[in-house]
């Protein structure tokens, strides 16, 4: 176990370094001058140069990289050019919102995906299965931002049901200690706050989660189908167990592994999706922040955000691998 974690830690470090290098270079190669975005039109050349030197943009790319990397390993990612705040604290303040959103979307996706996959198998070769397959196919084809826009149209404009922007009603008087609003409200038993958070969050979470749910259903149903013809399922039938008990109790754990692989891969798209969804719903997370950073060519912030996303992906991959070991006893003993 120790060796496994050590190896993964080394791989993670190498990945981060690679990501940092690639992003660093890309962002500087792309046209667009951050300084130009910041200054007023009539500024003098001297002022421009001074500003450039302030942000270290007058040095070579290599020198800039080592300076940045040197600070980065101590946890200093510099100052945002456009927002003039410390990058790390900026990201940390917004990260919890995105994490909660992504977690909610994933939970939704898994719940819906598993339920419909199991139902599909229960009704295998009967008419309802075709309905599930058809519905699934439609959902698969619709990208997350279309869902987002559709929800806004339907439940925000046509039949106003819920708020369509922000994370929480600004009129709510509640002092949060952390930025994990949902978790904190839950732990502190604030029902009213929870209800408001839920009202704001269900549409973005659903928009993000539905595409993943459809994929999970498709893949899980396929692997359940394969598991159901295995000998141990026949044994369970011969022991006298009913269909639902067999699908959930015998087949599901074995079928989960191939589904888990795909889910792990698709999850990265979900995290990427937060960027657009947060923008659409004006949700104050790092996705929203990222779009603004790119538009403003805010180099330090962009770099900090990319590294953050990379860390999230590494963490997710690690969790998926550990889940394999949990689900497949053969892997536990090496």
């Amino acid at each position: 176990m120790g060796a496994f974690l050590l190896r993964r830690a080394v791989e993670a470090a190498l990945t981060l370094i690679g990501v940092a290098i690639v992003v660093f270079v890309l962002v500087r190669v792309v046209p667009g001058d951050p300084i130009a975005m910041m200054i007023s039109p009539g500024a003098s050349e001297a002022d421009i140069q001074a500003l450039r030197a302030l942000y270290g943009l007058d040095k070579s790319i290599l020198a800039q990289f080592f300076i940045w990397a040197g600070h980065a390993v101590t946890g200093d990612f510099g100052t945002s050019i456009s927002l003039r705040q410390n990058v790390v604290s900026l990201i940390l303040s917004r990260l919890p919102a995105t994490l909660e959103l992504a977690a909610a979307a994933t939970a939704l996706a898994v719940a819906l995906g598993v339920v419909f996959a199991v139902l599909g198998i229960m009704w295998s070769r009967r008419f309802p299965e075709k309905i599930i397959d058809g519905f699934n196919g439609v959902v698969l084809a619709i990208p997350d931002f279309i869902w987002a826009l559709a929800f806004i149209l339907l439940f925000g404009v046509l039949f106003p049901l819920a708020p369509i922007s922000g994370r929480i009603d600004p009129r709510i008087e509640f002092e949060f200690v952390t930025n994990f609003y949902f978790v904190e409200a839950l732990l502190r038993g604030e029902i009213a706050v929870l209800a408001d958070l839920f009202a704001h969050g269900w549409m973005p979470a659903l928009a993000l989660g539905l595409p993943l749910a459809a994929i999970i259903t498709r893949v899980l149903k396929g692997s359940l189908d394969q598991a159901m013809v295995e000998d141990y399922v026949t044994m369970a039938r011969v022991k006298g167990f009913g269909r639902l008990r067999i699908v959930v109790g015998e087949a599901l754990q074995n079928a989960a592994i191939p589904a888990l692989t795909i889910t792990g891969v698709q999850f990265t798209f979900l995290v990427g999706g937060t960027v657009l969804i947060e923008k659409i719903f004006s949700y104050p997370g790092i996705g929203n922040l990222a779009i603004d950073a790119v538009i403003n060519r805010d180099l330090p912030l962009i770099q900090g955000l990319i590294v953050t996303f990379a860390v999230i992906f590494i963490f997710v991959n690690l969790s998926v691998d550990m889940m394999y070991a949990l689900l497949n006893p053969r892997l536990r003993h090496g």
Binding site: D231, Q253, N328
Partner: peptide, 10 residues
């Protein structure tokens, strides 16, 4: 087949 008749995950 005693291998496949037992559920590997249980």
């Amino acid at each position: 087949d005693p291998l496949t008749a037992l559920n590997p995950a249980r």
